[in-house]
Design a protein around this nucleic acid. Structure first.
Lengths: 167, 167
DNA sequence: ATAAATTTTCAGTAATTACTGAAAATTTAG
DNA sequence: CTAAATTTTCAGTAATTACTGAAAATTTAT
């Protein structure tokens, strides 16, 4: 497999995985492109490379900046803006986990909390609702907390002792 | 908050979280409904409760069965089919993690493997592609393996020592 | 076997989400 | 300042995804 093919394959596959980390395709592809680029890229270069419109590029870059994954790079003597992405996978994972937690998981946990603390009127169905949402709440809260803690261990959290620990 | 309101809130919130575990809204809502039901439900009951069509209900139940989250329940003397979902959150988490891994993460890891092992032609861009996809591959592979292992610890993996361990 | 009950399928439609492209806004250079 | 370069916005459109409803298929009872 040659460079070009490998590159396209990477961008497409990683891009399609966007759903897994909760962002859209174009966004994921722009990030992918920057991730394997050896230098900052301009909007022009990005739209050409991915065959997407100027508007689309602009909107998605902004979102990536909101996420804290991409940053503007000022290049002396250049009028255009250039962009780079966080290159360290660990740090990337940290940011993504944190954002998803904040945007999606935390709000759900809050609702589970609310629902699981309604007044027990003694009926079977209310009891079941309380019991099950409480169980989900505990699972979600603990998983969320774990995820954040793991991903915050700046030093190669993943390669070291945890794996050993979970057997 | 009364039972009805709490129930609807739960079904909607949990349903909208479907995207997070990679299934669509109707599917997530059906599962939610079964999850807090005190008895198996028929297709009829599900479609009425959620205001969705017969076809939609049928298709999504099938998918839930494919995922291994919902099972048909035969009720003596009843002609209709009834359905239940796995009620244990731990087990539910195990199934979901395993399925997502199989359907989405594993295939991506495979591509990352392929891309990161192309021949190094010595150019800077090829080197960068190899370096970065290798890093992603390692991250994804390790995270996937961890997730599966954690979730496979049948005994309350989450509430016990891991949290303590990760500080 | 026949027929009623029930489920599945799927073509058509609706709803949602993503994308384009050009006009408007902003920035930069002279 | 003016004008060129660049970016942003957003109404309109395209693409994707989800849903309906009725016909076809299947199951069950007699």
């Amino acid at each position: 497999m040659e460079y070009k093919e490998a590159k396209d394959k990477f961008i497409n596959t990683w891009g399609s995985l966007g759903s897994l980390w909760g962002i859209n395709k174009a966004m994921a592809q722009i990030q992918s492109l920057l991730f394997i680029s050896t230098k900052p890229l301009s909007m022009e270069e990005i739209m050409e490379e991915l065959h997407i419109s100027r508007g689309n590029t602009s909107m998605n870059i902004r979102q990536l900046i909101d996420w804290g994954i991409v940053t503007k790079e000022l290049i002396p003597g250049e009028r255009k803006e250039f962009f780079t992405t966080e290159k360290d996978v660990q740090e990337l994972a940290r940011i993504v986990a944190k954002e998803r937690s904040r945007r999606e998981i935390k709000p759900v946990i809050k609702v589970l909390e609310e629902v699981s603390t309604i007044k027990d009127d003694g009926t079977e169905k209310t009891r079941e609702l309380i019991k099950q949402t409480k169980a989900l709440h505990d699972l979600a809260a603990t998983a969320d907390s774990m995820l954040n803690k793991m991903v915050n261990q700046k030093q190669n959290w993943i390669t070291k002792s945890i794996l050993k620990f979970v057997k």
